[in-house]
Design a protein around this nucleic acid. Structure first.
Lengths: 343, 343
DNA sequence: CGTTAGCACTCTACTCAGATGAGTGCTAAC
DNA sequence: GTTAGCACTCATCTGAGTAGAGTGCTAACG
């Protein structure tokens, strides 16, 4: 239906508009290296394409933008997509490799609660690894090849992950190792687990167990820890509802700063300031982007030691009373929850 | 340092400004029921408060707004907050009661991957319950009072939750029940599990087991299912980076629609349209708020049946080629992952 | 002496006319 | 069929003029 040249021009217009968001003029198409026609010729074709419904003009003397029909044609006939994938593929796989754990869930959930209730942005700091240790370990066979590894931490978190079991390892052997692990490695901090596995048990296991290498690999998989201290954000979009941030650029500098994990870590770290509820107003936050924001934080703790923080970021014109009340409750609830799990 | 009246006026100004975001004039303070002074008097006090640094004027003939020092004083001396909490408390507790599960993690993670890679907003639809069934059940005692219930589903998801075990139930009894459950209820869809527990096993258990009531309660806890089909959003803030949405109001109508779960469910439901990658441009989406948006969706499946969808929402001026490529990879990866778990 | 009414003054936000310029449509020449 | 030239259109930008909210100051009042 469309001539080859029309397709080419439509393609060029859509591509240009996708990257520039500005109406595309005939001259700019003509100047592209792969187009050998003058602006006038392009204009004629553009007029035809507009009559056919593929292009639109926002007003008489602007360039053209693709109509919905134009996008539709572009998607159906012109898009050069290959789901076989290129650079992106690796990135996706890498993201998936990142493991998730139960603690993250709880904190993420709490972040959501906070932002939903306050309509501000919530920033939570996950509990520090260094305080949690192994309480109980279990390997639960599923079928011939797989088992679920169950790790109970000192904070009462239960984590599981599926591991593959080489066929040459017998059930009784596995059981022996699990018992050994439970007697020797309980109360070892999670982050030291893998190193102590080798130093404490290596020798003994090599004596008693036949498939040492393979078993060690299974345990390696099972104990893989990835408790980095992490930041959880929620409700960043709530910034938009505040009239002082109707200027999109301002919001952007704030949102950009929210992506800078190290900065936030420093701001929220329980070390920086006492316990209880803290309010930092405007420039009391160290960052210029937060000059018009207030940050209210509280800490949650276990055994009197501060484990992490929860915070709310809003405009300096913030509902201090309400937010402080909510933060107070939530930090106490988190603390109580941890104490309860820990028993 | 401040007189009682000054404190009262400062308090009134901060309160007013917090709720209105507009500079506060002397007249509006004077009109408040609890203030018995004329605007002129208020003005005099305001001038004093400004000189002391508690208030600021954006320009000569505007009302006053609190300075940082003013907010600080408000927070330190005037905020009427009670962390003992009121209405909010119940809401927080209720939110925490919501359970989270492993499937949610994976999907939420995928949503994040998508929005991060594309810089658009991602919308994911969790897998439908109706297709997943019980594959394996296990109760793992932790200590005298608690056990971990492990549920392996047909899609290979492993879920765990901690349940309390009444002391009168013995280990061997528990084991008997778990075996019964594994032989009779495997392949029953999760959402039917609890009802079939009673209809299929009730009679038999009552015959063989002594503490029927208590055990039933334990199983009830353990099998509690909360797989509602859910929507996962990520990167909604990315909308802001698009020039066509520099008008905050437009973004808001879109963000508001994104909160309407039922609408999104309808849009993403795999039923509505074939498999493969689908592109809905502008008004092809049924909602006016999406008139300037395109929604690209793909489905992931198990055994050829579509389980859920993943989608990207952006301006009609969207990088179709790239997004389609990424969606293609991710939907295939999700499908492959499910197939792998299912084996 | 604290409080209040009155009034001139200030400054932003809004509106409207004119200037600017990018881009078109059309015609005539190549 | 393609291109150069030119008149025309219309959004955007600029600056002047205006309305209105709110102040600061002074003088009067109880």
């Amino acid at each position: 239906m469309l001539t080859e040249r029309q397709r080419m021009i439509l393609n060029a217009i859509v591509d240009d508009y996708i990257s520039s968001a500005e109406p595309v003029g005939s001259r700019s198409i003509s100047k592209r290296g792969d187009v050998g026609y003058s602006p006038a010729t392009i204009r004629n074709e553009m007029a035809d394409l507009e009559e056919l419904g593929y292009l639109e003009q926002p007003h008489t003397s602007a360039g053209r933008i693709p109509s919905h029909k134009g996008y539709r044609y572009y998607v159906d006939h012109l898009v050069p997509w290959n789901s076989a994938g290129t650079a992106e593929m690796g990135t996706i796989r890498a993201f998936f490799a990142e493991k998730l754990n139960a603690t993250e869930q709880v904190i993420q959930h709490a972040a959501m609660i906070l932002s939903n209730m306050t309509n501000y942005t919530s920033i939570l700091l996950g509990p520090e690894v260094f305080h949690t240790s192994l309480r109980h370990f279990q390997l639960l066979p599923l079928d011939g090849n797989n088992a679920v590894a169950i790790i109970v931490t000192s904070t009462g978190q239960v984590e599981n992950r599926t591991v593959q079991i080489p066929p040459e390892i017998s059930l009784s052997e596995m059981e022996k190792v699990v018992n050994l692990l439970n007697s020797k490695l309980v109360n070892v901090p999670l982050y030291k687990l893998k190193s102590q596995l080798y130093s404490e048990l290596g020798e003994e296991m090599q004596r008693h167990i036949s498939h040492y290498e393979e078993l060690m690999q299974v345990l390696d998989q099972a104990l893989e820890s990835d408790h980095d201290q992490r930041i959880y954000l929620s409700g960043a979009a709530n910034m938009l509802t505040q009239p002082e941030f109707k200027d999109v650029d301002k919001v952007k500098t704030i949102l950009d700063l929210l992506e800078e994990t190290p900065t936030l870590l420093k701001m929220l770290s329980p070390a920086s300031g006492g316990t209880g509820i803290q309010v930092r107003i405007g420039t009391e936050n160290k960052h210029e982007a937060f000059a018009n924001c207030s940050l209210i934080t509280a800490t949650y703790s276990l055994d009197g030691k501060a484990l992490g923080s929860i915070g709310i970021l809003g405009p300096t014109r913030m509902e201090y009373a309400r937010v402080m009340g909510i933060l107070g409750i939530l930090s106490r609830d988190l603390t109580a929850m941890l104490a309860h799990w820990y028993k």
